[in-house]
Design a protein around this nucleic acid. Structure first.
Length: 288
DNA sequence: ATGCAGGCGCGCA
DNA sequence: TGCGCGCCTGCA
């Protein structure tokens, strides 16, 4: 762990609020000065903006340059993607105009699996609280600027917790799912290293669906936010709402099936459905 | 207070 | 395959 700093000038498509509030992450918190501090796999990171510069500083294991490049998806040309998506109509243009600074983070696969299992039938403040308590309970402590932070626990660390330990941390009925999935990973009933190497998004989904607590929506979130599968399209209530309002116009949005939504998304957005989803989702969350 | 929140697993047709 | 239902918990 080493204190490091990095300043990048003229980064395209990079708005802190858009990136951290668009629903993809749970461990980034806004500070009073408008900056964000987050705990990621590699340590603690603070991100702030000044004019055209983005400033990264923190205490990290590894080189800050490669960590930031990878985590913030700096190798992807968002301008090009937004230009292409904008061709698809006014609704998408509005969504992109609203969330122009979004980037899809590349977060740790294991952490995303557990985080999105926790997200089931839950709300964001509570999800964040649960993840925080789990990390405090068995994750590695890191002190930075006189404050304590806790990394998300490793598989081995989390496997030390019993079902009732997990229940006590407020996970509710998700306790067994977390426990079972942790043990599947621990016992190599599913190999996360191999999963990262799969090329086909459907293959990845099939593998993830074997895990307890991972259904359609959760699997899609994991493959989008940890494995950068831009073609996966998580359908939740907000996506259903905004897609129905903009494109389907069914008087009862609950009648619109997941299958219908996914097919529409694939036809309209193709292999960029996941990115399109983020712009629509963020717009919907803030405006509907 | 009752309903609800970024679903899932289960049992049943 | 495709439904409907119950579910921890905290918050309005």
């Amino acid at each position: 762990m080493k204190e490091q700093k990095l300043v990048l000038r003229n980064v395209d498509s990079f708005e802190l609020e858009h990136i951290f509030e668009c629903g993809q992450c749970f461990r980034w918190n806004k500070q009073e000065d408008g900056s964000y501090i987050g705990v990621i796999k590699d340590g603690v990171l603070k991100v702030s903006k000044r004019k055209n510069s983005v400033i990264f500083e923190g205490i990290l294991e590894g080189d800050i340059n490669s960590i930031v490049y990878d985590y913030f998806d700096l190798g992807t040309n968002y301008k090009k993607i937004k230009d292409e998506l904008s061709e698809l109509g006014e609704s998408m243009r509005n969504g992109i105009e609203f969330g122009y600074g979004i980037r899809i983070l590349k977060q740790d696969l294991w952490e995303m699996i557990i985080s999105f299992i926790i997200s089931a039938n839950n709300n964001i403040p509570r999800i964040k609280g649960i993840i925080e308590r789990i990390s405090e309970k068995c994750g590695k402590k890191i002190t930075w600027n006189n404050k304590d932070y806790y990394l998300f626990p490793t598989v081995k660390q989390l496997s030390k917790l019993s079902v009732s330990d997990l229940r006590l941390l407020g996970t509710g009925f998700r306790d067994k799912r977390i426990y079972n999935t942790t043990n599947m990973v621990l016992n190599k009933e599913i190999d996360l290293e191999k999963l990262q190497l799969l090329s086909n998004t459907d293959e990845i989904r099939e593998e993830l669906l074997r895990l307890d607590g991972v259904g359609d929506k959760v699997a899609d979130c994991i493959s989008l936010f940890a494995l950068r599968r831009y073609d996966s399209f998580p359908v939740d209530v907000w996506v259903r709402r905004v897609m129905n309002t903009l494109y389907i116009h069914n008087e009862d949005e609950t009648k619109v099936t997941k299958k219908e939504l996914k097919e529409l998304a694939e036809n309209m957005f193709g292999d960029m459905a996941g990115l399109a989803q983020q712009y629509l989702f963020y717009w919907a969350r803030e405006n509907m």
